[in-house]
């Protein structure tokens, strides 16, 4: 009799997933709201939002195709026709910076999300399970971490070949161990808290405890980690581009633009300075946001 009543009231897995998603978004929104209470957050969040919007609509704003040659106008200076001038092939720098935003932000965000997903999964499970398995897996993660991340990325990309999806995978793999570390230690401390013990005594299944009781409480740590990781991802992706292992030509990449423009610094510094400015302000924005999120954790909370 008792079982029948439970089944009747058990929500469908689909609506349960939707609810989890909504809760997740709500808690992200809450962390961002807290961050907006700090000066760093108030500068960082709008800056990041601006770039993300740019990444979404950039290609439609661009006056020219980023790959279109205007051979008559090579090395043109800034003008009303070419906002930031043109490069050695007469391509419009402004358009190239705009379309570069889409690729670098897309790649970095996707790579960060992948790294967070993998790391969270590993960190949460290992933290909760503990014991020998945890010991072995975390040693492996340490091994991965004991390898400079740029070198690891270079190796992986050399093997897989350079493409958007491979860069995303690379970033994900490179980030997984450190995210796992952070999440594991958060899980370890939350696991010993009394409300988790109460849930165990109630007889809640492990999956429920991990995802419903523990995961939401890692949100402050997770959002800070996400923003820090995002800034590393942008730095990593653009460095890979600069080294020629990023997005392949002719599509535009800020790192690659700087690398290629170096030989023309004397003639037209804007070729280099425009993407340099873009990548710098973007990372500054992300770092400010991270700072804001971190500071917000120390402020007293009110609902």
């Amino acid at each position: 009799m008792a079982t029948a009543t439970i089944d009747q009231n058990q929500p469908s897995p689909l609506s349960e997933a939707a609810r989890t998603g909504r809760r997740f978004l709500r808690s992200i929104r809450r962390e961002l709201r807290y961050a907006m209470a700090t000066t760093s957050g108030r500068i960082g969040l709008p800056l990041v939002t601006f770039y993300i919007l740019l990444a979404l609509v950039g290609p439609w704003l661009a006056p020219y195709s980023p790959t279109e040659f205007h051979l008559a106008d090579r090395f043109a200076g800034p003008s009303t026709t070419y906002f930031l001038g043109t490069d050695e092939f007469g391509r419009d720098i402004f358009s190239r910076v705009l379309s570069g935003a889409t690729s670098i932000i897309g790649v970095s965000v996707a790579g960060t999300v992948l790294g967070l997903l993998l790391g969270t999964l590993v960190g949460l499970t290992m933290g909760y399970v503990g014991g020998k398995v945890d010991e072995i897996v975390m040693r492996l993660m340490d091994g991965l971490m004991s390898f400079p991340s740029l070198l690891l990325a270079l190796l992986v990309l050399t093997t897989l070949g350079s493409s958007h999806i491979n860069i995303v995978i690379t970033i994900g793999v490179v980030f997984m161990p450190s995210v796992a570390r952070v999440l594991r230690s958060a899980t370890l401390s939350i696991k010993t808290m009394e409300f988790v013990q109460s849930a165990r005594i109630r007889g809640e299944p492990a999956l429920y405890i991990v995802f419903r009781e523990i995961l939401p409480n890692t949100m402050p740590v997770l959002t800070v980690e996400a923003s820090v990781r995002l800034s590393y991802a942008i730095l990593l992706a653009s460095s890979l581009g600069f080294l020629g292992l990023g997005v392949q030509p002719p599509s535009s990449d800020w790192g690659l633009m700087i690398s290629e423009g170096r030989s023309h610094i004397a003639d037209s510094p804007l070729i280099v300075l425009s993407p340099a400015f873009a990548v710098s302000t973007l990372v500054i924005g992300v770092n400010l946001l991270a700072e804001g999120l971190r500071e917000a954790r120390e402020l007293p909370k009110e609902d």
């Binding site: 439970i6 009231n9 808690s27 808290m193 009394e194 409300f195 109460s198 849930a199 109630r202 007889g203 809640e204 009781e213 939401p216 409480n217 949100m219």
Partner: peptide, 20 residues
């Protein structure tokens, strides 16, 4: 620490009653 800070107070009670 006895109550999950992310969940409303009724949650643990309802879970407990339904479980038991």
């Amino acid at each position: 620490a006895s109550l999950n800070p992310q969940l409303p107070i009724g949650h643990a009670l309802v879970r407990s009653i339904r479980q038991a």
